[in-house]
């Protein structure tokens, strides 16, 4: 399979929220933003260790809505890029069986 190259990596794939497409879920690892901004995100539910699911977006994919801790929060691409996540699956899924 063409995906086998990716599968050689360890079980966990590190990425950012920008890499998630609609329906993808990942575990938030850390927030690369200054203290106050990170705190505001944490108050909205973006806590390290929390599961974040990518949802719908504005036309063009930016900003995108993320489901986190029971809420739906929209983030711009520039912010989503600073939220590092561990993917539960390989970034690109193979064809459905």
């Amino acid at each position: 399979m063409q995906l086998s190259g990716n599968c050689d990596q360890p079980e966990v794939f590190s990425a950012t929220l920008v890499d998630l497409v609609r329906g993808d879920a990942a575990i938030l690892d850390r927030i690369d933003l200054p203290g106050d901004d990170a705190r505001r995100l944490m108050e909205l539910g973006f806590l390290p260790g929390t599961r974040v699911t990518a949802g719908l977006s504005a036309p063009g994919g930016d900003p995108r809505v993320f489901q986190v801790d029971g809420s739906e929060i929209a983030l711009r691409r520039e912010t989503a890029r600073r939220l590092k996540v561990r993917l539960e699956k390989a970034p690109r899924r193979g064809p459905r069986v």
Partner: peptide, 9 residues
């Protein structure tokens, strides 16, 4: 400056 845009739906 870079303040993140957050919008709760």
């Amino acid at each position: 400056g870079r303040t993140p845009f957050l919008l709760e739906m």
